[in-house]
Amino acid sequence: MRPSTEPQPRTSGVALPPDPIIRFENVSKNWGTNHVLKSLNFDVAPGEKVSIIGPSGSGKTTILRILMTLETPSEGKVTVDGDTLWDVSLGQKVRETRQLRETRKKIGMVFQQFNLFPHMTAMENIIEAPIHVLGMNKAEARERAAELLNLVGLGKHMNHTPPQMSGGQQQRVAIARALAMRPKVLLFDEPTSALDPELIGEVLNVIRNLAHTTDMTMLMVTHEMRFAEEISDRVVMFDNGAAVESGPPAQIFKDPQQERTRSFLRAVLQH
């Protein structure tokens, strides 16, 4: 735990903002000569709901995957809830440490392609990690899983397997599965992009509920601009591996300062 008396480096005086729960410091990611993230600095406050928007290929997914430890940064430091997740200098070979494994338990992720375990029922998908990773007993895990399934509106589907469910139902189970680990930070990577249009609403409703009723930190990559505007505390516009603009949704959507943001929004909101 970081002591609260530690000096706050980036504040100039009056109201002290809380310590960020997520902090990217000079994080870069290269694939060969493709510089996907360029010395990124980026903070998220505890409980904050942040939407990341931007054109395809701009590095949005990469940020989430670095947080989830599915990718290794080429350089830079990432801290989560006061713990160092990554601290990499250029060219250094990175190993998975115990610290990293512990820290990533604070983070959950909802994938674009759901990634449910197809050989397990909805219930089994949800209780798997609480039992085998957190050591929860089975009865407790099941009880909690049933609550979560009710929360996402699938109380009647606990014995269905993924192949028997629609995409929208699968994604809702995937959200319940991530919640069962009680993460402090929940990441969403375009959670509705793989869904048929008529199924998007049911998933967005679940996420909206979470945003309004929990103090979990949420970081979401999305192309649903109206939805991002509605639920976010802050919207970050990404382009070319850098955050070009960040601010409250009203400002980003109604009065964007950067030409890149304006042209991007014009393009996506047009049709």
Binding site: M68, T69, L70, R101, R104, K105, I107, G108, M109, F111, Q113, N115, L116, F117, E128, A129, H132, V133, L134, R177, A178, M181
Partner: peptide, 22 residues
């Protein structure tokens, strides 16, 4: 599918557990 391994990592499952259970 690669996604299965990634889902396991996101749930904090160690390699041995991933193999055995999933």
């Amino acid at each position: 599918a690669k996604g299965q391994t990634e889902a396991c990592i996101a749930l904090g499952m160690e390699p041995a557990l991933r193999l055995r259970r999933i």
